[in-house]
Design a protein around this nucleic acid. Structure first.
Lengths: 198, 198
DNA sequence: GTCTATATCCAGATAGAC
DNA sequence: GTCTATCTGGATATAGAC
């Protein structure tokens, strides 16, 4: 997969796009609550009035951002489902995609995976109930039906397959891993799959 | 391990204890930034002046809380090191402890593992560089030296052993898992260990 | 749709008596 | 060490011209 395939915010020229791109940067660097709307005004170059016109309030910015990013990831997962068959191939493709995405757009992964949405988007459920996460679990569950995955509790199986990779992503985003995730992909995948292979 | 062994805040009577217990509750339920000092004043029953006298500022409360909790977990991990030998037994004991802790004191795990400390404790490094986490990795690394753990990158090995369990804890804290973690322990451990067994 | 100027509120923090 | 009363800045959000 070429890096371009995972670009979320190509240099935006419209107000909406500029604000969302700015918000993503600031929210992930400093956190939602440490970012003031005035700061978004300064960095994005858009005016207060304009921003409130488009998003209603500060929470509206986070909401729009969240939806845009989740929708994009969702589409990428649909691609995976279409292009690969079998649990092993699909799960591996998911991990590879997440690794690629983390390197190409760390802010996106940071915001989608590790921001504490409950704290600033109260009406939204936990991220793990969002469609992309459900699809990840689904790949594993269907593998279990075909015997490709060992029979254990489906939740445990999914946690085992993806847990190590998500952990690595976390370490990378926290700056603990010096080398890019791609270098670990084969080993991570080998461990992940051994944990649930029949 | 009896539940009492993992109680962090036995009903505290002194100001410090009451404030820390209150802060833990509020910070994990609502988030650090959604919690005002006035609210801590109301719930804890201590006065503004008293709180600022003890902790300096709001960040000081979070700092003290963080240190107390990490120190406690650290001690529990030292216990594990003393009571068990071999990577398998130690790693399993770690996971069992974390599961027990999550059920007994979910707020503690929430605050230590999943709060975004970077956002309100800027001078502190990421939680994964803290001593307990280093000790977890160390158990795995030493197992690799003795051949008990397959030779892969030590970071990958640690992520594989603990990744699934941490994922399960996350799901449980997010309310996605209905049943207590203890019921999953054996399966989680089986998957975890298979991923790195030689 | 975009802008500037401005209103309002409440958070974090302090003063100083007891 | 603990308390009440108070200050002050800066945050979110609005008004209303263009």
């Amino acid at each position: 997969m070429a890096p371009d395939d995972v670009k979320f915010f190509p240099p935006a020229s419209d107000t909406r796009g500029k604000v969302l791109a700015t918000a993503l940067q600031l929210f992930t660097r400093q956190g939602y609550f440490n970012t003031s709307v005035s700061q978004i005004v300064r960095v994005s170059g858009c005016s207060t009035g304009s921003i409130y016109h488009h998003f209603g309030d500060k929470e509206g910015i986070a909401n729009a951002l969240f939806e845009a990013l989740v929708a994009r990831i969702d589409a990428l997962f649909d691609d995976i489902e279409r292009r690969h068959s079998g649990a092993a191939k699909r799960c591996r493709a998911v991990i590879e995609l997440l690794f690629t995405l983390t390197e190409a757009e760390p802010e996106v992964m940071e915001f989608v995976l590790y921001a504490r949405h409950r704290e600033f988007l109260p009406e939204r459920g936990p991220i793990c109930s969002a469609r992309p996460f459900r699809k990840m679990r689904d790949f594993v569950a269907r593998g279990m039906e075909t015997g490709e995955v060992r029979a254990v509790d489906p939740v445990v199986a999914a946690a085992s397959v993806y847990g190590g990779a998500l952990r690595m992503i976390h370490l990378r985003l926290d700056g603990v891993l010096e080398r890019p995730l791609g270098e670990f992909l084969d080993e991570v995948w080998a461990c992940a799959w051994r944990s649930v292979a029949p």
